[in-house]
Design a protein around this nucleic acid. Structure first.
Length: 424
RNA sequence: GGAGAGGUGGCUGAGUGGCUGAAAGCGACGGUUUGCUAAACCGUUAUACGGGGUCAUGCCCGUAUCCCGGGUUCGAAUCCCGGCCUCUCCGCCA
């Protein structure tokens, strides 16, 4: 959520920002509702003032004089009712429109229409060259009996799967390695609800834009989260934190549920785009300071790179262009990991910086040293998401005989297993 | 799922129609006293929005807020209705 005062003062800046993000948004309608709402509120306030004043006087009066004064007030009350009806009608419209306004991107974000115009910042690691014909992760996983797509589909429809045996073990090993790395860096581990109130989805910016991506439990007005970012970021909603307690650094593992609406026919093969997966997510709540936020952004990016380096996976970092940014993000760095079967880098991580956007919606504030109240800044990034990351792991660590070498960092979490051979 | 009790400021806790944005206590902050600390004493101690004022901060005026939303009333923390949440007991259960 943006600050309406900033929009009033400089609507053109927000018009341009929406255009750059390729998000349509009727700012004129919003400004119109805002003006009418303010007018009604001002007039209503004046009437309240008169009512309050008269009320005190009536308390002192007696007899006919009191009756006459009360009769007058009854007239005033009719006008107050009209105005308050207007306010009641306009307020939800105002809220509804405010929830659609995009946060302007940072100046250092490259202008662009879509993900083809993202700017590569760096490449890390060597892309493996095979001296045999490599298999893709589904061929490997099926032959080794560690991935079972057919039965996943039988259970839950397309984009579902079952990991079994060493596949499921490796999945858990990756998640646990990620948690251990983050805890070692001082992040507080938490478990969080994955079925949350709709207000939490709205507060983090996933509703109303993007509502069609979520599984809804409408009977309970709740939704399944697509990422632990949602409950973790909202953990402190409605609270006032102490500045001394910032930043708050959290990490959580959760199952993530995504409908992938509108993605029909896209990435239909394999474990790339699926309806459920597990993800370790890092979230920072920081002070209202742009340079501090930028530093945290680099920190969470580095954390994820540490994870990929531990797994020995080649990747690149891209600066996501304006057209590929979400509504609330001021800047986003994606990490894309090399996936042999795609012959390309594929997105595995997404590090976002929001400034106040989420904190305003969630009402997360802190008491600054000077006594004033300020909105926090929020950031988040993937630490690891599996099974998507199993794609590069299995494909890059495969051997000519169809077995897969276990990355050394995972072996302690897999009972010392060095190789997946199919008899596992 | 059944039956009860309850939601007041940072916290505890008064308050059943106007004098209550809200007693009292605790905590916190500022000050006095004081070898230091402690104690004692004095003072301060909500937020949002609108308006005024200022170079700006301080500031001044108004409105709203005692879980949320409606209603009754000239006037609601207080009365009525609906919702949400918490707690206790019983039942069920991973």
């Amino acid at each position: 959520m943006i600050d309406i005062k900033l929009l009033r003062a400089n609507p053109d800046e927000y018009r341009q920002a929406a255009r750059a993000k390729n998000i349509s948004c009727d700012l004129d309608a919003l400004l119109d509702v805002d003006r009418r709402l303010l007018d009604a509120q001002r007039e209503l306030q004046d009437i309240k003032t008169a009512q309050n004043k008269a009320g005190k006087e009536i308390a002192q009066l007696q007899g006919p004089a009191k009756q006459a004064a009360i009769a007058q007030m009854t007239e005033l009350k009719k006008r107050a009712k009209e105005l308050s009806d207007t306010v009641t009608e306009l307020e939800p419209k105002f809220q509804e429109l405010m929830l659609l306004v995009p946060q302007p991107a940072d100046p250092e974000v490259p202008l662009g229409r879509d993900d083809t115009e993202n700017v590569e910042l760096r490449r890390v690691g060597e892309v493996r060259k095979f001296d045999f014909t490599p298999k893709d992760h589904i061929e490997l996983g099926t032959a080794l009996d560690i991935i079972d797509v057919d039965r996943g589909v039988k259970l839950a429809g397309s984009r579902n799967y079952v990991l079994k045996g060493a596949g499921a073990l490796m999945h858990q090993a990756i998640l646990r390695l990620a948690l251990d790395q983050m805890v070692a860096k001082g992040y507080t581990l938490m478990t969080v609800p994955v079925l949350v109130n709709e207000s939490v989805m709205e507060g983090t910016g996933y509703f109303p834009v993007g509502r069609d991506q979520a599984y809804l439990c409408e009977r309970d007005a709740q939704a399944l989260v697509g990422t632990a970012e949602v409950p973790v970021t909202a953990y402190h909603c409605g609270e006032i934190l102490a500045e001394a307690d910032l930043p708050r650094k959290y990490v959580a593992l959760s199952t993530c549920f995504r409908r992938e609406a509108g993605a029909a026919g896209k990435d239909t093969y394999g474990l790339y785009r699926i309806h459920y997966f597990d993800k370790v997510e890092q979230v920072i709540l920081g002070p209202n300071d742009v340079s501090a936020s930028k530093a945290f952004h680099q920190e969470i990016l580095r954390n994820s790179e540490d994870m990929l380096n531990a797994l020995g996976l080649p990747y690149r970092v891209v600066n996501v262009c304006t057209g590929d940014l979400g509504q609330g993000q001021v800047q986003k760095f994606d990490i894309e990991t090399w996936m042999p079967s795609r012959g390309n880098y594929g997105e595995t991580h997404s590090a976002s910086r929001f400034y106040e956007f989420q904190a305003r919606r969630l009402n997360i504030r802190y008491r600054a040293a000077d006594g004033s109240l300020k909105f926090c800044h929020t950031l988040n990034n993937t630490v690891i998401a599996s099974p998507r990351v199993l794609i590069p792991v299995l494909e890059l660590y495969q051997n000519a005989d169809g077995s897969v070498t276990v990355p050394p960092a995972l072996r302690p979490y897999m009972g010392g297993m060095e190789r997946i051979t199919g008899r596992a």
